[in-house]
Write a protein that binds this DNA or RNA. Structure first.
Length: 488
DNA sequence: TTTTGAGTTGTTCGA
DNA sequence: GTCGAACAACTCAAA
């Protein structure tokens, strides 16, 4: 048995798993493939990235830390490196005398290119180089309409997906041969990756809001199923209802797999006789929206930059730097928007509905390019995801797939009154308005001098006057969107 | 090929 | 206060 993993020199031959967006043990086909062959080393490489993702990097640091411990306990050392994977991996494979390398596929243009180059290198080699399917329910090219293409509309795609059998998650089995440590000139410590900027105190405010890692993700899913899912459809729109799953960052880093989520939803539904419950269906559809975003990321070029609907080429955006800054800082003078932007800054996440409201304000009322908003979200969200972020910003701006019609412009006052009726959410994140009567909490500019004074609010002093007039800017947006209509 | 029905999340206006 | 229609026309999916 022992000799099985020894080569002719009597040197141990090991297997490598290259971890990326799959920081888990359970349902990890690449990790499992390596472990099934025997002794395994895991590596995480910090690759150069054009996009700033500081909040997400904070999460990544802690997630890798948790994963390193979990893997160590099953005899798989996790090592780190920084640089171009095309250079590092081949050297590492040679240095470690590895016989095989595995990874789970990713779908960004850059990621696909890098992985393809490495795969080509080992095409006719003795080193087995294999990519696996681990981060989606189905590959982006697997779900096809009757014409053989990919779906451009969500609902038929969702229906089609539901007719297919989702593969079962792969349970983790540890390798027969444990490995203690790795000697390498190519690796560094987790701290040396510098994922956390220690000069900044920003990320400190994230800490109380999150439990990071695979174990925490699993607990969160179970709690969500037991306590929230039956109320999900109705409650998820209400900002203070605490009805959403907040699994998104765990999903982004693959601390939990979508297949595990689907499997556990179905098991839960079955044992509680809830198969057709609206909450179950609605939550499933959200997981499938993630798939839909990944299909778009795979099938469209430069989805982070280029509008999918080509009629938006040359759209008359206006990048007003001052207004953009006010939006980022949560100082627009529109309470629900400021609440959302401050929740984002302080916790690294924003409630789903508020994301739509702030994005609608930025792209429609302010006519600031959606790419700018998307960049800010990438930098400040702990769940920042190339696929979901790009597809959803395009959707709000009106240039994405299945997008909202151009006249669908959220009114932040109406939205606030509907989904944050008593102003709890606004008051939590915009404490300046703590004592304002709930009649005016979503539009303080309508309050009388007396009411404002009573609440200690001085517009333009301790809380901004609105940076735009909602009614007028709505009209202007409708006019600007006529541009799209007139494109051939 | 042609036709038909449908499409995440909204707002406003007027009855 | 509630409800339906208008907002406009296009693209997608399937028959």
């Amino acid at each position: 048995m022992q000799n099985m993993n020894c080569n002719f020199k009597g040197v141990y031959v090991t297997n490598i798993v290259w971890l990326r967006d799959d920081l888990r043990l359970q349902d990890n086909p690449a990790l499992q493939s390596a472990c099934d062959r025997g002794e395994t080393i895991a590596i995480y490489i910090k690759e150069p990235n054009d996009t700033k993702t500081e909040a997400r990097d904070w999460w990544l640091h802690h997630s890798l830390n948790k994963l390193q411990t979990a893997l160590k306990n099953v005899g798989v050392p996790l090592v780190f490196a920084e640089g171009n994977a095309c250079n590092i991996l081949p050297q590492f494979i040679e240095e470690q005398n590895a016989s095989a390398i595995f990874w789970n596929r990713r779908y960004t243009e850059k990621g696909i290119k890098t992985d393809g180059e490495i795969k080509t290198k080992y095409k006719d080699s003795k080193v087995l180089c294999q990519s696996c399917m681990g981060n989606l329910l189905f590959e982006p090219w697997e779900i096809k309409n009757k014409q053989g293409g990919f779906f451009k509309v969500f609902t038929p795609m969702f229906k089609e997906l539901l007719t297919l059998k989702t593969p079962k998650p792969v349970p983790f089995t540890q390798p027969k041969e444990m490995r203690e440590r790795v000697q390498s000139t190519l690796t560094c410590t987790l701290e040396e990756l510098n994922l956390i900027n220690s000069n900044k105190i920003w990320h400190k405010s994230f800490e109380p809001h999150w439990e990071i890692g695979e174990a925490a993700a699993e607990i969160k899913l179970q709690k969500f199923l037991e306590e929230k899912i039956t109320h999900y459809k109705k409650g998820r729109d209400f900002m203070s209802d605490n009805s959403t799953s907040t699994l998104s960052p765990h999903l982004h880093f693959g601390e939990i797999s979508p297949r595990t989520i689907f499997d556990e939803i179905e098991a839960f539904a079955l044992s509680n006789n809830l198969e057709n419950h609206e909450g179950i269906q609605c939550f499933k559809s959200e997981i499938v929206w993630r798939e839909f975003s990944y299909q778009q990321l795979f099938h469209y070029e430069q989805i982070e930059q280029k509008p999918i609907n080509e009629k938006f080429k040359g759209f008359p955006w206006e990048l007003d730097a001052e207004k953009f800054t006010a939006w980022k800082k949560g100082l627009t003078g529109i309470p629900i928007v400021d609440a959302g932007m401050r929740e984002l800054w302080q916790t690294g996440i924003m409630h789903n509905r508020v994301r739509m409201i702030v994005a609608s304000l930025l792209t429609k009322n302010l006519l600031i390019p959606w790419q700018e908003g998307a960049k800010w979200f990438m930098d400040t969200l702990v769940d920042a995801d190339e696929a979901a972020n790009s597809a959803n910003w395009q959707w709000v701006a009106g240039c994405g797939l299945d997008a909202s019609p151009y006249f669908r412009i959220f009114n932040p006052v109406t939205q606030g009154e509907k989904f944050d009726t008593d102003g709890t959410y606004v008051k939590k994140w915009v404490p300046e308005l703590q004592d304002l009567d709930k009649k005016y909490i979503h539009q303080p500019w309508e309050a009388s001098e007396f009411d404002l004074k009573l609440a200690g609010v001085e517009l333009g002093k301790n809380y901004p006057k609105p940076i735009i007039n909602l009614k007028a800017s709505r009209e202007r947006a409708l006019e600007a969107y006529a541009f799209v209509k007139n494109q051939a």
